[in-house]
Structure formats: structure tokens, C-alpha cells
């Protein structure tokens, strides 16, 4: 009731506080990139001087850096990330607008499956503590933690795509879940394994606590004891892992999208970096920072829900 109101107020305050943070990130990134030696057109050394000058002019690079900054921020406020330096005829807004839905779909499915399956496997292992089921689940978790997605995905592609012909190795079609299965598995596996381990450990600890003993003594069925009494405190470590999990999926998507040939925004980050495509990299930095800031906020709220002792007065 009033706690819900407190949570809403907290969320809005923090969201307002995120705007200056984002502004600082934009400013820092902008000037750091400009300060670096070299420019986006350096590799094309064969360009005649006047063509080069025209290019610079066309992209506004001939103007003083402060003017460029002013233009950039002004455009940014209207949702315009500027033209891409490398993908001719495309604005960064267009590139991101096309790629983001794919990356978002891939990432959110992977995160959701990692959370749901990870929590379920963790609970299962805790309830089978030191028995075969526990050992099997934890052995799988070690594999998930140890082997990176850029090894898992090609191996899966080789097995299910090339040898068994069950699933496509690479490529993407709108609204086709078949193309997403292998990338999602590869992407979800590492955070899934970590979550399963975290939940198992915290669940074992919670199950030893006095309030679980009380819940059992009350004659509640095991399902109720686990879901109503044990699950929320056991999820606390998962909440604090959420931001790293999103980061892990974001970084994973860089390689997974390129291996699976998915038209997401992951490839723009690496491509943009290698090509020195200033505006594209800036756009990516802004998108990812915004995502992380919102994620951090959600984690705080999740914490408050999981543990009423957490106070929300920042």
C-alpha cells in the first residue's frame, strides 16, 4: 500500500537522477572519441585531399569540436543519433531501430529462460542435496559456467544444424522462433548456470533457517513452504546477479549474433569500433548505458520486494 507508493516514488526519483548520469556518459564518450588520434576516413588513404575535405565537411567534422558537440546533443534530444560514418545513406537511428528489436528479442528470451530454468534447477538441486540429481545439475552448471557461448554455439550448430538438420545453423527470418533456438541456448547457458548455482546455495541456507522450520511445523505442504516462505529470500543473490547477467547476455550477443548471422545491433558495436564510426559507437554506448541504468533501478525495486527490511529512502 504505502510501500507500493514508496516504490513508485523511488523509481521516479531515481529515473530523474539517471538523466544527468546519461548526459555525463554522452559528454565523456563524445570528447574521448574526438580526442583520439585518427578519424573515420583514415583507412581510405587513397582519397584525394578535396574529397576528404568534402567528407569531413559533409559530416561536420571540419567544425570546432564544441560546435559539433552542440549539434550532436541538440539532435540527440530529438531522438536523432546522427548519420553513420560508415554505413552510407543510413542514420544511426535507422541502424539501431532495425537491429534493436532483434537483439532485444534474443536477449529477453535468453534472460527469461536463464532466470526461469536457472531458478528451477537451483531449487531442484537444493531439494536433492547431495544426491544424484544434485550432482547431475551441478555438473551441468560447471559446463555452463566454464564454456563460453562462442564455443557452445558453433558446436550446437555443427550438431543440430549440419549433422542432424534439425535447426538452421545461421540466418534469421522475422517471426521465426526456429532461428532463435540455438542462439538463445548459447546465450542463456552461462547466466543460467550461475543462477542455478546461486539459487542452490542460497536455498540450502534458507532451508536451514528457523522460519522454514516454523513453516514446516505449521503443517504446510512442501510446495507452499518452498514457494511462499523460502523462494523470495533465496532469490536475493539472483537479484544482485541480475545486472551482471544482463551484461553477460549483452556481451554474449556480440559474438552470438555474428556467428548466427542475426541482424541485431551486436555487430555494430564491434564493426563501429574497428571502423571508427564515431556516431554509431556513440549510439551504441548510449543505448547500452540506458539499458544498464534502467536494469540497476529494477534490481533495487526487486530487492525491496524480496526483502521488506530494505528501505527505499535514498
Amino acid at each position: 500500500m504505502d510501500r507500493l507508493a514508496a516504490m513508485r516514488r523511488y523509481f521516479l526519483t531515481r529515473l530523474a537522477g539517471a538523466v544527468p548520469t546519461l548526459f555525463i556518459i554522452v559528454t565523456l564518450a563524445f570528447f574521448l572519441i574526438r580526442a583520439a588520434p585518427g578519424g573515420p576516413f583514415d583507412q581510405e588513404q587513397t582519397l584525394p585531399v578535396e574529397v576528404m575535405a568534402n567528407l569531413q565537411k559533409a559530416y561536420g567534422l571540419d567544425q570546432p569540436v564544441w560546435t559539433q558537440y552542440g549539434h550532436y546533443v541538440g539532435a540527440l534530444l530529438h531522438g536523432d543519433f546522427g548519420p553513420s560514418f560508415r554505413y552510407k545513406d543510413f542514420s544511426v537511428t535507422e541502424l539501431i531501430g532495425q537491429g534493436l528489436p532483434v537483439t532485444f528479442e534474443l536477449g529477453s528470451i535468453a534472460l527469461a529462460s536463464a532466470l526461469i530454468l536457472g531458478v528451477l534447477i537451483g531449487i531442484f538441486a537444493a531439494l536433492r542435496h547431495n544426491r544424484a540429481g544434485d550432482y547431475a545439475a551441478m555438473s551441468l552448471a560447471v559446463v555452463g559456467v566454464a564454456i563460453p557461448s562462442f564455443v557452445v554455439l558453433p558446436f550446437l550448430g555443427l550438431l543440430f544444424g549440419i549433422y542432424l538438420h534439425w535447426l538452421p545453423v545461421a540466418g534469421w527470418e522475422p517471426a521465426s522462433i526456429r532461428h532463435l533456438i540455438l542462439p538463445v541456448v548459447a546465450l542463456a547457458l552461462p547466466p543460467l548456470a550461475v543462477i542455478a548455482r546461486l539459487v542452490r546455495a542460497s536455498m540450502l541456507e534458507v532451508l536451514r533457517s528457523h522460519y522454514i522450520r516454523t513453516a514446516i511445523a505449521k503443517g504446510l505442504p512442501l510446495r507452499t513452504v518452498i514457494l511462499r516462505h523460502a523462494l523470495r529470500p533465496a532469490l536475493l543473490p539472483v537479484a544482485s546477479y541480475l545486472a551482471p547477467a544482463v551484461a553477460s547476455i549483452m556481451t554474449g550477443s556480440l559474438v552470438v549474433e555474428s556467428i548466427a548471422g542475426l541482424p541485431g545491433i551486436g555487430r555494430y558495436m564491434v564493426q563501429g569500433a574497428l571502423n571508427r564510426d564515431y556516431t554509431l559507437v556513440m549510439g551504441m554506448v548510449i543505448i547500452y548505458s540506458a539499458l544498464l541504468i534502467v536494469m540497476g533501478l529494477l534490481v533495487d525495486l526487486l530487492y525491496a520486494w524480496l526483502d521488506p527490511r530494505v528501505r527505499l529512502d535514498s
Partner: peptide
Amino acid sequence: LSGLPLIFFVIFLTVIFGR
């Protein structure tokens, strides 16, 4: 620092300093 996706940071640094 541990909340940052450091790979992105590294990639960003490559933009600035080259590979």
C-alpha cells in the same frame, strides 16, 4: 566497475586507441 559490461569498455577503448 563490476556492474559495467567491461567488454564494451574495452571495445570503446579500441575505438580511441586503435587495436
